[in-house]
Design a protein around this nucleic acid. Structure first.
Length: 421
RNA sequence: GGGAUCGUAGCUCAGUCGGUUAGAGCGCCUGACUGUGGCUCAGGAGGUCGUGGGUUCGAGUCCCAUCGGUCCCCCCA
C-alpha cells in the first residue's frame, strides 16, 4: 500500500502494544514525585521564541539550530525545545514565589528539536522533569540527585547500569576568570582545535570541554577547581559530602559543562552503560540560580532535571527489566444468534457500569469468530448468550483458561465475575 | 548540516548468472465443527518489488537520481 501520509521524520506514534509501558513509567513518575513533595505543573507547547533565546541562550545549539520557530503576524513562536524555561515563565507569571518557601514542581512534557534522528534522539521526544525554586542550599542538589537515582531504582534499573556524572561550573562571580583561562588555553592551541571549537572559542569557550573531537587536546585544559569562589567551592564540597552520606554514587566529570547557558554551579548527567547507543544520557540537569532573575523575576536560586522518557524505555528494554503486560479485559460477551445480540450489548453495558472491562463483537460475526475474538482479547471469561440462556434470564460463563462453563443468572453476573477474577 | 547503510505482502524475510504468471513463515478472513476459542487441516484475501528515469530483446535483480527508514558525526533527553 502506498502511503500518502506518514509521520514526520523523527516523530513517532506510540501504538497500543507499547502505550501501556508509557502509562506505567508515567504513573511511577507521578507517584515518585508526589512522594518527594512535588506538585505537577503543565505548561503550553508553544511559547514566544524569545523566552528560549533569553534563557537557553542564543549561542546554544538548541536555539541556534534546533528550535522549531514560526512566525504568525508580528509574534515569533517556538515549540518548546526543553522543559525548564516555560516552567520558570509560569512560576513568575502566577507569582508562585509569593507563596514563600521552596516550590517543587514536576512535569511530563513533549519537546521538539530539529535534529537528525538517531537511536534515542527524536524530533519530538518526551521528558519527565522537576524544578525546585527557592532552595540555595546544597541539600536541594543532594535531594534532587538522590531522587533521580531512586526513580531509576523504582523502575528496576540496577545501580551499576548507570553512572551519575557530576560537575560544577561556578557562578557569575568566578566563572568569567575560568572562562578566560579556557579561552587562553584554546588560543594557545588554536590550530589543533576542530572547526566548531575554533568557531565557539570566543563566544562560548567552555563548550570546548565537551567536544569529543578535541578531548585529546582539552584533557590538558585547566581545571575549574582553583578558580571557584569560596561560595561555589563550599557548595560543591558539601554537595559531594551529602551524596556520600546518602550513598549516592557519582563520578566527577570536570568536562561536563552542558549546552544550555543558564546553568550555574551544579551540572550533572546520568548515562546508561548499555541500551542507548551513542546518545547515552538518560537525564541531565543542574542548578540555574540566575535564570529567574534573568527572566524578570526576583533573585531566586533554582535547579532541575530532565529525564528522557524514550531513553528510559530503551534502557528498560535493553536491560530486560521486567515490565507490565498490556492490560486485558475481564470478559467478552458472545451472542449466539441474532436474537441475542441486543441482550449481549445490554449485558456488556451493565457489566461495565459495575466496573468491569468488557468487550463484544460489533460486526455481527459468527459464534466461532466471536469466540476467536474472545480468546484473542485476553479476557478470562467469555459470557455466552443463546436461546437457552435467554429463556432463563441467564448466561453461560466460560472460563477461557480452564474451559469450565457455569450457568449464572444475569442478575448475579457482575458479582459472579468479580468474585472469580 | 555532513556521513554510512537499508527499502520485496500488515510483520519478519527468501528471490540463483538479469529470464516467463514474484514466494515462504507469522498474522488476517472463511470452512472442516449450521450454539463454543487456543491445536490441526483445507481454502482465501493481500504486492504498480519505495518513487522516477536509464541500460537491455527482457530489470525485484545492473546504473543514475530522488524520497523514506535506521544508525553515526555534531550535540543533547
Amino acid at each position: 500500500m502506498e502511503l500518502k501520509y506518514r509521520a514526520l521524520e523523527g516523530m513517532h506514534d506510540v501504538l497500543p502494544e507499547s502505550s501501556h509501558l508509557w502509562q506505567y513509567v508515567e504513573s511511577r513518575w507521578r507517584t515518585h514525585c508526589h512522594q518527594y513533595g512535588y506538585r505537577e505543573i503543565r505548561t503550553p507547547l508553544l511559547e514566544t521564541a524569545e523566552l528560549f533565546e533569553r534563557s537557553v541562550g542564543e549561542t546554544s545549539d538548541i536555539v541556534s539550530k534546533e528550535m522549531y520557530v514560526f512566525q504568525r503576524g508580528e509574534e515569533r513562536y517556538a515549540l518548546k525545545p526543553e522543559g525548564t524555561a516555560p516552567v520558570v515563565r509560569a512560576y513568575l507569571e502566577h507569582g508562585l514565589y509569593a507563596a514563600g518557601g521552596v516550590q517543587k514542581l514536576y512535569y511530563i512534557t513533549p519537546f521538539f528539536r530539529g535534529e537528525r534522528p538517531q537511536k534515542g534522539r527524536y524530533r519530538q521526544a518526551h521528558q519527565f522533569g522537576v524544578e525546585i525554586f527557592g532552595a540555595a542550599h546544597p541539600l536541594a542538589d543532594a535531594e534532587l540527585l538522590s531522587m533521580v537515582m531512586a526513580f531509576f531504582r523504582v523502575l528496576g534499573i540496577p545501580d551499576d547500569a548507570l553512572e551519575l556524572r557530576l560537575n560544577t561550573i561556578g557562578c557569575p562571580d568566578c566563572r568569567p576568570a575560568y572562562r578566560e583561562a579556557v579561552r587562553a588555553f584554546g588560543r594557545a592551541h588554536f590550530g589543533q582545535l576542530c572547526n566548531s571549537c575554533q568557531a565557539r572559542l570566543e563566544r562560548n569557550p567552555l563548550r570546548l570541554l565537551d567536544c569529543k573531537e578535541c578531548v585529546a587536546l582539552t584533557a590538558a585544559a585547566p581545571p575549574i577547581d582553583p578558580y571557584l569562589c569560596d561560595a561555589c567551592r563550599t557548595h560543591f564540597e558539601s554537595l559531594q559530602s551529602l551524596l556520600k552520606s546518602l550513598g549516592v554514587a557519582y563520578r566527577r566529570d570536570a568536562r561536563l559543562v552542558r549546552g544550555l547557558d543558564y546553568y550555574t554551579r551544579t551540572t550533572f548527567e546520568v548515562v546508561a552503560e548499555r541500551g542507548l547507543g551513542a546518545q547515552n544520557a538518560l537525564c541531565g540537569g543542574g542548578r540555574y540560580d540566575g535564570l529567574v532573575e534573568e527572566l524578570g523575576g526576583p533573585p531566586t536560586p533554582a535547579l532541575g532535571v530532565g529525564i528522557g522518557i524514550e531513553r528510559t524505555l530503551l534502557v528498560l528494554q535493553a536491560l530486560q527489566v521486567p515490565l507490565p503486560e498490556p492490560p486485558s479485559i475481564d470478559a467478552y460477551v458472545v451472542a449466539f444468534g441474532d436474537s441475542a445480540r441486543l441482550v449481549a450489548l445490554q449485558i456488556a453495558q451493565r457489566l461495565r457500569a459495575a466496573g468491569l472491562a468488557v468487550d463484544l463483537d460489533l460486526e455481527g460475526r459468527s459464534p466461532k469468530a466471536q469466540m476467536r475474538l474472545a480468546n484473542r482479547s485476553g479476557a478470562r471469561y467469555a459470557i455466552l448468550l443463546g436461546e437457552t440462556e435467554l429463556q432463563q434470564d441467564a448466561a453461560t460463563v466460560k472460563d477461557l483458561h480452564t474451559h469450565e462453563q457455569t450457568l449464572v443468572s444475569q442478575a448475579e453476573l457482575s458479582e459472579w465475575i468479580r468474585t472469580h477474577l
